[in-house]
């Protein structure tokens, strides 16, 4: 569902993402981890079509992102770490606007059901300025799910959420994956990876240094030891320093 081949993103002489190749199938959740400055957000932004990449090939839901970006974007949803909302649109107006952008048929009942599911229906006529951070995050998710995306990208999805919000976000990601969505998420929170992700990819200085299922990556860095925590594996893989 997501195929990435030799993805390179350069800023002048600096290479932010270097020959990244990955593949994520429907129902899988790939966790993108790495130290600060490893290129996680840049990778996600390239895959979501937000920033152009220097070279490589990206296929989203069998559509080439470069040759047909509109069709590829129709199949994906990007959830940024910081909820970006229009200041003057209410919750309902955000949903109406998004429905039109994605051409959602019979949007009204779908909007109600999503807002109900995310428990923000009572906030339908509120502006972003009147919502808590968690509520804003929920609204961003509701907007993203409105067109039933096949591919989802989450950039630090738990940032700023309270314990209950974190629990619900994890459940939501897993539920979507079980329903057949393809998910890539980036996070510093290793416990999130353990609970949610089926696969993990470790990035360092823009390069993939390890990938596979959690068990595979653990086996590679545990050196025969048992009960090595993911945190320890991360430290060993990245050398324990920032990029």
């Amino acid at each position: 569902m997501i195929e990435v081949s030799n993805l390179i993103k350069q800023y002048g002489s600096h290479t932010a993402v270097n020959r990244l190749t990955l593949s994520v199938k429907p129902g899988e959740v790939l966790g993108l981890v790495g130290p600060n400055g490893a290129g996680k957000t840049t990778t996600l932004r390239c895959l979501a079509g937000i920033i152009p990449f220097t070279s490589g090939q990206v296929t989203i839901a069998d559509v080439d992102l470069v040759t047909d970006p509109v069709a590829a974007k129709r199949a994906l949803a990007f959830f940024p770490d910081e909820p970006r909302l229009f200041d003057y649109l209410t919750v309902r107006q955000h949903m109406t606007f998004t429905a039109r952008i994605y051409g959602v048929v019979n949007a009204e009942p779908l909007i109600i059901s999503l807002l109900q599911e995310l428990e923000i229906l009572d906030k339908a006529d509120k502006l972003p300025g009147q919502l808590s951070r968690g509520m804003k995050q929920k609204l961003v998710i509701a907007c993203g799910l409105l067109h039933s995306p096949k591919v989802m990208f989450f950039d630090e999805p738990l940032t700023g959420l309270d314990p209950l919000g974190i629990r619900k976000m994890k459940d939501s990601i897993m539920r979507r994956a079980q329903a057949g969505a393809t998910v890539i998420l980036s996070s510093h929170l290793l416990h999130l990876l353990e609970e949610v992700c089926t696969n993990v990819l470790i990035l360092k200085k823009g390069q993939k240094i390890a990938d596979g299922t959690l068990a595979e990556v653990s086996a590679r860095y545990s050196a025969g030891e048992s009960n090595v925590s993911l945190e320890e594996i991360f430290m060993r893989a990245t050398g324990g320093v920032e990029d």
Binding site: F86, D87, Y88, L89, T90, Q93, T96, F97, A99, R100, I101, G103, V104, V105, N106, A107, E108, D125, K126, L127, G129, Q130
Partner: peptide, 25 residues
């Protein structure tokens, strides 16, 4: 105006020209 809600200028349907969504917004 942080807490002032503004009315829809017209009814925006789910389908149709996407540029109109920006006009509406």
């Amino acid at each position: 105006v942080k807490e002032k809600v503004f009315k829809d200028p017209f009814r925006l349907l789910g389908q149709g020209s996407t540029e109109v969504a920006f006009l509406w917004k």
